[in-house]
């Protein structure tokens, strides 16, 4: 049985339903991310789990206990907010000790736990500072320590990295994951950043328009998207329209160029299909079974990789190639041949 069970949750605000029939099980100790665009209902789902929003229908069970009607203070759920939410009138140590004091823990135990938490977030000497004396990354680490200090059974993270700059974001997400692994705490993380979700999660729930689109591991979500939305939302994807060349044969015509498809079953010749390919599925040259020739329409230098926009007769696609400092990247207008494996092709229904 799952440690957290969200049983057909629904949330409506007036006539507007923002979460539809949300049904999910989360295993003990898992790191699960709710991923989706703004307004998809991911934060509302998290807030229902925290108790800040009352579910319009459905049940929430944590470790077998129905907490649907419990107030947030009674759920033993730690929460980290996007805006840090540290208490400005308290020092770092006082912030971390707040939940323990509220719980009536003895002073000696509180002091020990605060020291332990400061060591965990690698800020052992900043206990006497006030939040405004810390950087954004430090404040969020303190917020994490404060949430963990009370030994919550679940940790909820509501876009905790969104307000930080790119470099801090990467290092802090690694720290969050390391702390989560060390403590083995069941964690639900809300983000709209696919890279964040892919890098940090055991399981990703992709949401759209208040509904769950797909639940899976980062590998499955990225490589085997089950819907056009997931395919488009997670990662960069080039979509094509291709025509079946001949019935019974797995060959498609892509702007007149033949490519082998994974399995077209018995679709009739002339049928137009949507196919999709990731930029990294392509490689330069004609080594693979499927080859395409075109003209470079755009070159974007992204540091470690160079993204090329390639124009076929009518359609365009993106491909990524590694930056090689000793070689000049291809130029706009160059003729180019690329290849890809049939198994990398996603058929879109």
């Amino acid at each position: 049985m799952s440690f957290i069970r969200l049983d057909h949750l629904r949330k409506t605000f007036g006539a507007n339903t923002v979460v539809h029939d949300f049904d999910l099980g989360i295993e003990r100790g898992a790191f699960l991310s709710l991923l989706g665009p703004s307004g998809c209902g991911k934060t509302t789902a998290l807030r229902m789990l925290a108790g800040f929003e009352k579910a319009s229908a459905g049940r929430i069970l944590i470790d077998g206990t129905d907490v649907t009607d419990l107030p947030p203070a009674k759920r033993n759920v730690g929460m980290v907010f996007q805006a840090y939410a540290l208490f400005p009138n308290m020092t770092v140590a006082e912030n971390i000790a707040f939940g323990l004091k509220v719980a009536g823990k003895p002073a000696s135990g509180i002091a020990g736990r605060v020291t332990e938490m400061l060591a965990l977030i690698k800020l052992p000497d900043l206990g006497k500072r006030y939040p405004y004396q810390l950087s954004g990354g430090q404040q969020q680490r303190v917020a994490l320590a404060r949430a963990l200090a009370v030994h919550p059974q679940v940790l909820l993270l509501d876009e905790p990295l969104s307000a930080l700059d790119a470099k801090i974001r990467v290092s802090l997400r690694e720290e969050i994951r390391a702390v989560q692994r060390a403590l083995g705490i069941t964690t639900v993380f809300v983000t709209h950043d696919q890279e964040e979700a892919l890098s940090i999660s055991d399981t990703i729930v992709v949401m759209n328009d208040g509904r769950v689109e797909q639940v899976g591991t980062p590998f499955d979500i990225y490589n085997r998207p089950k819907s056009r939305f997931v395919a488009n939302f997670v990662g960069t994807l080039s979509t094509f329209n291709a025509r079946i060349a001949e019935s019974g044969k797995d060959i498609l015509l892509l702007d007149g160029q033949p490519v082998i498809a994974p399995d077209l079953a018995a679709r009739p010749a002339g049928t137009t299909l949507g196919i999709a390919l990731r930029p990294e599925a392509f490689s330069l040259g004609e080594s693979g079974p499927n080859r395409l020739s075109g003209t470079i329409g755009e070159v974007t230098f992204l540091g470690s990789i160079v993204r090329l926009r390639i124009q076929l007769a009518e359609q365009t696609f993106s491909m990524d190639t590694f930056n090689q400092p000793s070689q000049r990247p291809p130029a706009v207008g160059d003729k180019i041949s690329v290849s890809f494996a049939p198994t990398d092709m996603l058929l879109l229904e």
């Binding site: 925290a50 108790g51 800040f52 107030p71 947030p72 203070a73 009674k74 759920r75 033993n76 759920v77 730690g78 929460m79 907010f81 939410a85 540290l86 208490f87 707040f98 939940g99 509220v102 719980a103 917020a143 404060r146 949430a147 009370v150 909820l156």
Partner: peptide, 9 residues
């Protein structure tokens, strides 16, 4: 909300 999640009334 932060205080509530830490058990405060």
């Amino acid at each position: 909300e932060a205080a509530e999640s830490l058990g405060a009334g």
